[in-house]
Nucleic acid binder design. Structure first.
Lengths: 347, 347
DNA sequence: TTGTAAGCGTTATCAT
DNA sequence: ATGATAACGCTTACAA
């Protein structure tokens, strides 16, 4: 038990207590193979009885390692990143590394400044959905980087296979009978959005589906609310949203107008964040294994710190369609749905 | 611009470039009043042209300060803590401190071990909704602690005024005409739950309202789903849930059974997490200024590091009722609502 | 106002 | 297998 106010004991104290030199203590702890078994157990006992904890600063000063990892996300309030963070944190802690977390507020400038500030305090950095240009990334003040949700030449990365997820979503809708699908696009510069568009086009071409792209909209609940009317006007019988937040926004506005989902319009989201299963009806969505992503990204980072031979590697995560209740067959002509109520937003 | 691969420059390099001793460089940066103006500007120029950044480990070794703060939350996946974290992170960064974050997975044991692990690496620690006993807290391996969401004698803390929030909620329901209210309680050991119960009892006694306490339930969406039927059976015309997650769970199950909110039952949540405004109908809830809480908690912590005279202080945050659409007048006898559909969970 | 030098706690190098 | 000792980069007495 740690006594309050007592000075933390140092390696010297342990050495004295065990009757050996500090070098031996250091070895007993760090390179167990280099000391006699008997000596080591004596040292270990002394250490634990004194409650000895190595001073990280001192260690860092000489090894050049901090034992810290950093994670930068565009928005700590976005549920999509929570489980990435959770996975990252868990994996890092298992490797006895602490995790710094910072929020770039969706701004490239802020991200760059964060990068600068953290570079010296961490052994490696995980950048989630980085807003930085490939150029800026290449001249980052730290080269032990791993990217999540973005692929940039020469930087190891973990990305969800969005294109395949999109293919699954489109196929699901096709099987249900939909022939006119709209995609509610996210930020134009978003790498994920580009992947989703590619997947959409490929799948629609293959299945002979008419697709239209709406947006881009803000990748938020509010963005979805605003897009609901245009979606309805587009004539599509099903809409795939850039992400769950947008889909939930669309569903919310549709409910307020008395438009039934999925009877009148089928709705698919992306990411499978917790709220997707809490709405009425629960949202059909393309799940991304974000917690695993966080774990794997840190794994990659730790690996890179060790041998550093994973420079350009890219780990592609499988995505999977979670079918809930926001998708169904398209409305039939013989069984028309009631007229939508007047738009509550313009009243 | 930072060149890749170049060794980071040290205080020695700066001293050489400026033609002064390392001590002068150190003072120019840390105690501007102790060096000649001309000298200082020469040093500053040299430092910036070399892109000098002090080595935190070396500084820490001598000052005993790390420049880091830690935040421990019970669950990184719980939206309630996200904005606390966000506020904390922002305030810390403004004070040039980095933030470690860790997830105790709702377990006191894990929290204690995290505390142990982080104690030496941070200057201070913010514990959110700590699961530790007052005893364990008192003998923590670090005494620069601030608590959020809990009040413990001798430890500075930031807490929402839940009792008052509860009073506002009860009053709101009373004005609408409700005379039988149920409270869906959270974890028995939760400090917040105890506050809410107190507020409930006081307000109900004052207003002459019949109250009943249901639960405790798990403070999650699933907990709410499970509690929905008992709530309905309780005969109350309005229910206040331990938190928004529970309220949303109740609403979800009620919707599936065809029970209308608020026509048949009024529903109030706690916390005002983002999902509260995304449901249909949007949730009436007691808002807690969590982001401000994070900022203030860090403020308190920084203050404590400086002079250390805020030992037992407690900052009580105002709460405010956000009236949305899940509350309304109680159903009248003359206008009975339709029978609920058979329970979908048992079909 | 400035310089010199002694440490901070650890690991790593070189002896033994 | 073990010990003595020099670094690591910085702050801070103490001297000048």
């Amino acid at each position: 038990m740690t006594l309050l106010g007592a000075q933390p004991s140092t390696i010297k104290d342990v050495a004295r207590a065990a009757g050996v030199s500090v070098a031996t203590v250091s070895r007993a702890l760090g390179a167990p193979g280099m000391v006699h078994d008997a000596t080591r157990s004596r040292v270990l006992e002394a250490a634990s009885s004194l409650g000895y904890r190595p001073n990280r600063a001192a260690r860092s000063l000489i090894t050049g390692r901090t034992g810290n990892l950093g994670v930068i996300v565009p928005d700590l309030g976005n549920p999509y990143f929570h489980s990435v963070l959770k996975g990252a944190q868990a994996r890092a802690r298992a490797a006895d590394h602490a995790v710094f977390v910072a929020d770039s507020e969706e701004q490239a400038g802020e991200e760059a400044s964060l990068l600068e500030a953290m570079a010296r305090q961490v052994d490696g950095l995980l950048l989630c959905s980085s807003r930085l240009t490939a150029r800026a990334l290449a001249r980052a003040p730290i080269d032990r980087l791993v990217l999540f949700g973005r692929r940039v030449h020469g930087v190891p990365s973990v990305v969800p296979d969005s294109a395949d997820g999109m293919r699954q979503a489109v196929t699901h809708l096709h099987v249900l009978g939909h022939r006119r699908i709209a995609y509610l696009a996210g930020p134009r510069r978003s790498w994920s959005d580009q992947q989703r568009r590619k997947g959409l086009e490929a799948a629609c071409r293959e299945l002979g589906i008419v697709q239209s792209v709406l947006g881009p909209v803000s990748p938020t609940f509010a963005g979805g609310v605003e897009a609901a009317d245009p979606v309805l006007a587009s004539g599509a019988t099903a809409v795939i949203a850039y992400n769950d937040l947008v889909a939930v926004g669309v569903a919310h506005h549709l409910a307020a107008r008395g438009v039934r989902v999925p009877e009148r319009l089928s709705l698919v989201g992306f990411d499978d964040i917790p709220v997707a299963s809490m709405t009425t009806p629960p949202l059909t969505t393309v799940a991304v294994p974000t917690e695993a992503a966080g774990r794997i990204a840190i794994e990659l980072l730790l690996d890179r710190l060790g041998r550093g031979d994973t420079a350009g590697s890219c780990f592609e995560l499988p995505t999977s369609l979670v079918v809930r209740q926001s998708t169904g067959p398209p409305p039939t002509r013989s069984q028309p749905s009631p007229e939508p109520r007047p738009n509550p937003r313009s009243s």
